[in-house]
Design a protein around this nucleic acid. Structure first.
Lengths: 182, 182
DNA sequence: TGTTTTGTACCGATCGTTCGGTACTGAACT
DNA sequence: AGTTCAGTACCGAACGATCGGTACAAAACA
């Protein structure tokens, strides 16, 4: 069992409970490992665990969500494809985003930097698509920021209200909103 | 020193660090009280502290943000007034929303219920204004949900990117967006 | 006086972490 | 071939520190 084997379990824990909400006892139970074994795979302790988890999530996002945005095709259709992947990632609004969960909560400076770059990479990927579709860079940046705002906001509201429809409606409107007037 | 005296300090702690991120030692230091004094004012312990803090925040929101929405006047101007108050509450995007902070993080069922009602009350107040301005109830509900989505999302993104402009831009666009076509 | 408020000391539980050690593996040496 | 040996994966037990919470008596105030 390699270290990567347990990253999905860590991902579920941290996205739902945040850094402080997850104890090593939780992780040990979720992975089926003893606490001491966790330190074999993650010598840096809890910090290394959450950083590895963020890396795992970032890789998944880059591969399954952002990379398809760079392929050839109609911009709006590519964005609809992206929304499908996001809906899968967030289980139609029932699962929180690990970037959001770790953005709030206590300010861990090293974590904050990783989260920041994750958000920025997400925004940048959408902006590049919109620029390629003919939008000016200024508007493209603003629109893609708005996209992440809507995704994160609707996720939070859906979680807060115990109602996935705000998230689903946000995803439905997103592609057309981003491509309006192009 | 009454219990209310220390609620602003608790509010700052919980909104920034969340439930798990705040320890009784933190609270004792922030309030200048000893643990025994804290348990005198909040016999229910940490749970009562965070619930009292949510009550305090809810009262502030109802008085300074939601109640003005019910007064007479042009809908868009009332919403602009609301955005000014929100900008003050969130320090122009530099401070998180306690509802968001407590929505994410571990699932405490009792907390979740209070947060849920806080969000719902916020949405409801905006929807009532839009209905009074002539919008049909269905659209009013959706638009006010979108408003809270944008507020929470832009707050999260602004915090995550260390850049208050997404929040400020969201607030700027909010009133016109909500009143479009009325 | 009686009541409210506080400081001090303490509790059991849990936190993240470390230690010493076991079981198994595949390569290296004789 | 048999043996040694380094490396990987894992675990139980314990560490000091801190967690949320309590008991109680001195102090402050009425």
């Amino acid at each position: 069992m390699s270290r990567e084997t347990h990253l999905p379990a860590l991902f579920q824990l941290f996205r739902q409970q945040g850094y402080d909400g997850v104890s090593l006892a939780n992780i040990a139970q979720a992975t089926g490992l003893g606490k001491a074994s966790l330190y074999h795979h993650f010598p840096g302790g809890k910090d290394e665990m959450v950083l590895a988890t963020l890396g795992y999530a970032g890789d998944w996002l880059a591969l399954n969500v952002l990379q398809p945005l760079g392929e050839e095709g109609d911009a709006q259709e590519l964005l609809e494809e992206m929304c499908d992947r996001l809906s899968q990632l967030y289980d139609e609004g029932r699962q929180p985003c690990i970037l959001g969960t770790l953005t709030l909560g206590p300010v861990r400076d090293d974590l904050h930097e990783v989260v920041k770059q994750g958000l920025a990479r997400f925004i940048e990927a959408i902006a590049q698509l919109l620029i390629k579709a003919g939008l000016d860079p200024r508007s493209a940046q603003e629109r893609s920021e708005d996209a992440v705002v809507m995704i994160q906001g609707s996720l939070l509201v859906s979680r807060g209200l115990d109602d996935p429809t705000p998230f689903q409606r946000a995803l439905d409107q997103l592609p057309a909103k981003l491509c309006a007037g192009i």
